[in-house]
Design a protein around this nucleic acid. Structure first.
Lengths: 248, 248
DNA sequence: GGGCGGCTTTGACACCAGTCAAATCCCCGT
DNA sequence: ACGGGGATTTGACTGGTGTCAAAGCCGCCC
């Protein structure tokens, strides 16, 4: 298992000097690697292997052996939980720098798949866990990320359990504004909606139709304007969205 | 902040020998302390302070300064997220051995309160975080717990987003069977429902009335039998509950 | 350019769970 | 035993969201 990783993509490393692949990595600044010195990072590099996946590909199926984890270098993934009869809930979205995988579990309980063409730096899980033991700073970084993910999951539990459809949509759009919003000319904010209606529905615990209807209503009330031809839109009423999310 | 803890409850400690309070602690076996040797544990003991809270008391309010964390020694707590207009969602339940608190956050975003009389071993958050840095084994233990909590949160997101009322109730009862179930004479399993109908509703993202109606239906169909006088009940149809949770 | 197919929108309707209200149960103190 | 009060149960009704169905839109390939 480890051999694969060692045989492939072995950049010669000089102690104290980051491997070239890592130096050039777009995700290094905000991934687990960020906290590691050049010397430390070569330990990760030694077990890591680059992998590119096209859009819509599964990285790991729920129920399969949980042999790999990864860092997102570029692109996006979704983490999905499912009922036995096939209903789906997206329980997490992953962006560049995020860690991918369920550590310390023999079998995966969640399905991870790409939302667009995605580059990963993958590690055999067992080797990654061993590396973690030798690098407390990395472990600390992972702890912080895991705590952040837990906080996120909890705020989403509030949304799924207690907010209605319009509030969930408003909250999602405001999250996008925070993550990717760019000022647009007319005082609005330009955002890219990176997922399909169906994925929004799976993320928000709604149906496609409800998502579509709510977005249409926001458009009709002048809060949103949709761009032609892409998945972008402009938020014209950020404050009104906040008022929807937090009704009096 | 730290002074308080040091002044109070200072059991003399011999290096390499667990403090008496910790030796006798009911939670030691399955708390963060479990992985620590007697020598290490005195570091936690030095900053820890026992605290007893009656049922229904708030340990920490969302929005308040986040100055303390703790380990549950005995009893139960709930972790609650709220919308601005007062809707509530229980995002976690805490049992003996569990860790309490949001690390690395200046202000609390969640309210933690007791479900029954509860004993805690509390630590000033800053001191706890410093101790964590010096004790990688403890940090590793906390990482594992946090990952487990995240997995739990994600399976609850699936329930809140995609399961109907009956399925959520069935899942909750099966969780109780797994946690506290004792074989009952007639082939059933005896469980204690440790929370009120209102708290079940807040946990499951339902209303009190819906919870009550669903339980009544389960009783009517012979799957559940309620005990008189306490919150206990007997699960007579565990398999039928599983069938409800996972419909074909 | 035409047509196919997937994604999205819109409409009509059903139903599950929420709301409001009242009755019942039960714990507890007097 | 009696009475008060909170928790729980039950009933009647409403409404939001899901379901089913059809139409529209758009990219893409032939």
């Amino acid at each position: 298992m480890l051999t694969d990783a060692l045989l492939l993509d072995r950049t010669p490393t000089v102690p104290g000097c980051a491997p070239a692949r890592c130096q050039a990595c777009k995700a290094r600044g905000n991934s687990l690697c960020a906290a590691m010195g050049d010397g430390e990072i070569s330990a990760l590099h030694a077990i890591g292997r680059r992998r590119s996946l096209p859009a819509g590909q599964v990285f790991n199926w729920a129920g399969d052996q949980n042999n790999h984890c990864a860092t997102v270098v570029e692109g996006m993934l979704k983490v999905t939980a499912s009922t036995e009869d096939g209903r789906e809930q997206i329980v997490g979205l992953l962006f560049p720098g995020d860690f991918v995988g369920e550590l310390f579990e023999e079998d995966a309980t969640l399905t991870v798949s790409t939302l667009c063409d995605t580059d990963l730096c993958t590690y055999p899980r067992a080797a990654f866990e061993r590396t973690l033991e030798d690098h407390p700073r990395m472990e600390r970084m992972l702890l912080r990320r895991t705590l952040a993910a837990l906080g996120d999951a909890r705020s989403r539990m509030l949304a799924l359990g207690r907010r209605n459809a319009k509030e969930r949509i408003a909250g999602f759009l405001l999250d996008l504004v925070e993550r990717t919003g760019q000022p647009a000319g007319n005082g609005g904010v330009r955002i890219a909606i990176p997922i399909s209606r169906g994925e929004m529905a799976d993320y928000l615990g709604l149906t496609i139709e409800t998502v579509s209807r709510q977005l249409s209503q926001l458009k009709a009330s002048g809060i949103l304007a949709f761009a032609k031809g892409d998945r972008g839109c402009t938020v014209l009423g950020e404050e009104r969205l906040r008022a929807i999310l937090n009704p009096a």
